[in-house]
Amino acid sequence: MERFIGRQATQERILETVDSLFYREGIRAVGVDKITEETGISKRTLYNYFPSKDHLVTAYLARRLIPISISEKPAEEQIVESFVQLERSLADEEFQGCPFVNAVVELKDPYHAANEIALAFKNQRRNWLLELLERLQIAHPESLAMQLMLLIDGAIAAAVIRRDPKVARAAGDAARVLLAAAAVGSPDVSATTEQSLKRTTDRGATRRNATLRMLE
């Protein structure tokens, strides 16, 4: 039993090290020598746990594939909050983009297991959105789920280039507009999104009035 626990601890130490190295420096930039140096183990020991670097890459991504839960909060609130959480993630100094997309782009191998894991991650997020949208009884939830996914992916890509986490806030505003436009027969969504849009309109009117007073 102790030997099993020790093996688990070593494997977890390897994966923690690989996770940090691959995400921070890039998969191709990190060699086996770097991994063994950081973990303090020999190559032989490393290969006893992971026969190849490809196995390490697969384990690294699979470890990050964490299930997304749905709470008892209102469906629209959960969707909107996901963009707030995204902004927090983008503001992290260690943020280097989506690890799944990064892996697919770096490896450039359509048959690598990393592609399947990346697709599983995207489908997981899409299914999470789809279930929430179905709760709201929104027409064409599949299409709207994909549109929301594009907002999320776009915000992540923009943040990598601009280094500005507030792009997630803009994506969240766009998500509210999409929800309001699609909320046919869904009074809960309509009421919430109308309030958000009204606040935006009021702020715009205030700025316009201030500008006009300056010109008088």
Rank of each mutant, 00 (worst) to 15 (best):
L46W: 06
E93Y: 03
I79P: 05
I66Y: 04
E38L: 13
L107S: 01
L56Y: 09
N123T: 12
T36R: 10
P51S: 12
R44A: 15
E38W: 08
N115G: 07
A62Q: 15
I41L: 11
P51A: 12
E87Q: 15
L46K: 01
F100N: 00
S69C: 08
Y60H: 14
F83P: 04
R88P: 00
N123F: 14
F100H: 00
T45S: 14
E87V: 11
A62S: 11
Y60T: 05
I41C: 02
A118Q: 03
E116Q: 13
Q124T: 11
H55Y: 12
S52F: 09
K122V: 14
E93Q: 07
E72H: 13
E106N: 03
V57M: 02
S52D: 10
S52P: 05
A62G: 04
N48P: 01
E94S: 11
Q96N: 12
E72Q: 13
R63E: 12
I70C: 02
T36Y: 12
T45Q: 14
N123A: 09
C98N: 12
E81Q: 13
V101T: 10
E93I: 08
E87F: 07
P110L: 03
G40N: 09
E93L: 06
I66P: 00
E116N: 10
I68R: 13
I41W: 00
A59V: 05
A114D: 08
Q85Y: 12
F95E: 01
P99G: 00
R63Y: 04
S71H: 10
E87N: 09
L86M: 11
E106W: 10
E77W: 08
Q78D: 03
R125L: 14
T39C: 15
A91H: 05
A59D: 00
P110A: 04
I117Q: 03
A120R: 14
K108Q: 14
L46E: 00
D109I: 07
F83K: 02
S69M: 12
L119T: 13
S42L: 11
P67T: 09
Y47A: 03
P99R: 01
K53L: 07
E38G: 06
L119F: 14
F100K: 03
I117Y: 01
Y47C: 03
L107G: 02
L46S: 02
P51T: 07
R88I: 05
A114G: 05
L65R: 12
G40Y: 11
E116G: 10
T39V: 15
H112M: 02
K108A: 15
E116M: 11
S71K: 05
